[in-house]
Design a protein around this nucleic acid. Structure first.
Lengths: 208, 208, 208, 208
DNA sequence: TATGAATGAGTGTTCATTCAT
DNA sequence: TATGAATGAACACTCATTCAT
């Protein structure tokens, strides 16, 4: 039994890499990184197993490409985030958080996140890449945003000291929760986001 | 070359399952779920590969047992958390958060967490188990704690409405971060915890 | 389709390695080193492909073992050659040549010889091994024999200067000829040996 | 990544087959017959893998052509050998032997020789071809030469009975030795040739 | 003529699992 | 209880060859 179903050979040089990446992402989402096979990817892409090797040197390469691809889109999205640095802090922050959820819960990034957690060995180049390109940059952006809020007098000055990753933790949590427990107990995302923002802004203590 | 190295065959059929579980946890921590093999587990346990089958029906079974095991210990720990429901809310919360970090960042739970994320298929029984026994209970506990804080007048009344998972998200995040990026950029855990608690309590907005 | 034909599992721990080596030698003889597959070896040995891995770590290992094995037997045989260092030179030489043909033309050594020629990359450990254990030793033995002949006054003194490999070249040639052209034009071995000995002893020039 | 590197497409359909043969010979010399790939040949020839199929039907065909090609050159060379059938036998023989070494040790024939030994299946057409065109003819030539020597009274009459292949065996041996052990222990070719000729002419026995 | 795209058949190797003792 | 022996299923990857332009 072979992967592809014997359709006439189609020449799709341009489109293939993208198709393969998409197929790989699908496979990844469904089977996890351990369960993903080249055969599965090929089948999803509608090509033969060997054709994959025309575009990628190795299985690892495919997944790295997928990760990079997703990263790039995430980065592009992040860049557009920067643009909206106007208005009151609350609005900006809400906006940013919204974007993060879009990527991490609904978008492809959640699949990559899972792969990262699964295979995350420290020596992996892709892990370093992700750390450098996504998390470090995201952290820096957050820091800048907070500094701005402090400068404007909207935030308490101690806010500048807080580890910015804490401010976005609930989004990561939501992404993982959806992956693992999504079908058992889905998160009411809108509410969750609202609570997230509200907590970050006001805390829960009475006096403040 | 076989797995076990011929150590004196100790007659401890009672202890075996526990030994295997411990070995599996080690293997899991070191190799990740994809890289874990029965042979590796057997070697660590000092027994032969086939002996494992006397105690567990399948590889999957072992890991489920390990997860359950860890869960139980986590639950016991959680139970002890309940005891300390005295003093001001801030102190209680700090205490609880401390425990969670202990489990999720330093303890065995992080290994299970990774496995959960890696292999987490919704249909998996172990996922349901984990959801039911850990997260749901943890959520309930948190909710109770908050309700208490509100009742005592320490917390804003709207706190009772907040999804309690948000309050512990940074801990989950820290656990995952340590697994994935731990060697690239370690988290200053004490500071992170302090920031976590502080944020949850006060938020970052000025007026409060 | 698997290799072995579904016979009940037989436990033959002791005998297996030898059986596998024999199977590998067969396969080697029939298919050459390029055409030899693990599956073929397994089939010949009447076991499954994976069983081979219980006894050898890699395909390369098998062939090295086969080569070593054959070498050892050849060496043992060579050792027994030494014993016969009595009688007139002509007789001794005839004896030795006889042995060499036995190994190189009829025996397993021809198969190894072919493999050596086929795969003989300089870096290969097995090539060095063969050179050191077989050819160098053989050369030394020949040299000793000739020196003895000279000392006894049976051989011209210049014989001691001749590269001893020349004296056994026809045997190597016959071995290779049999491998390559054996079925097209078989060598009349008895005659060939007689001619070989005669040429080495008397040459073809009239005066002498 | 493709094989050819986009050099200006030269219109030389005449030259192509020859170029491919040359490339194949290179590949054969470097990688051996097992390690030779169509891709490698194409790359060396500076064309694409599929272009090869315009000139040769199959990989096997290429190698047969290469062998034939080399054979032809060897035959041409052998023909020129014939011309020099003047002078004393010793000189003629020395000349012929010299030529054989030139082909078999230094020349392309050694590469073919190795391939022949490696893949030499009896049913192979190329083996028959080689046997018929090279060895049989060489044998005949040698036989003629010896007959001449006997007729002239230079050689013992029994020389006519000797299998002529024996007389050239050391050359074959030297060719193979160089291929296999060349890097470990090179042969001093001049000396080897001298010894070879000397042995064939005089033998090593004292009285003669 | 020339080539890039595509593929089927095959290879060595790993691993969870079963058999026999 | 414990284990060594054995195996089937699977997988990543290679390569000669064909298709379509």
């Amino acid at each position: 039994m072979t992967e592809h179903d014997g359709k006439p050979r189609q020449r799709r040089k341009e489109a293939r890499p993208e198709e393969i990446r998409r197929a790989a992402l699908e496979e990844l989402a469904e089977k996890g990184i351990a369960g993903s096979t080249l055969g599965g990817i090929a089948r999803r892409a509608g090509i033969s197993r060997t054709t994959v090797y025309l575009y990628f040197e190795t299985k690892q390469d495919i997944f790295e490409a997928v990760a990079r691809d997703t990263v790039e889109r995430t980065i592009d999205d992040a860049a557009s985030m920067m643009a909206g640095f106007e208005g009151p802090f609350e609005q900006i922050f809400t906006n940013v958080i919204d974007r993060i959820y879009g990527q991490l819960v609904d978008g492809d990034a959640s699949v990559i996140l899972r792969a990262l957690v699964s295979e995350g060995r420290e020596q992996s180049e892709i892990v370093e890449f992700y750390h450098r390109e996504i998390f470090a940059k995201g952290e820096a952006t957050m820091r800048k945003m907070i500094a701005m809020g402090v400068a404007r007098g909207e935030l308490v000055s101690s806010a500048a000291e807080i580890d910015p990753r804490i401010l976005m933790s609930p989004a990561i949590f939501a992404g993982i929760w959806s992956l693992v427990f999504g079908n058992i107990e889905a998160i009411d995302l809108e509410r969750f986001k609202r609570d997230h923002v509200s907590l970050v802004l006001h805390g829960i203590l009475k006096s403040g």
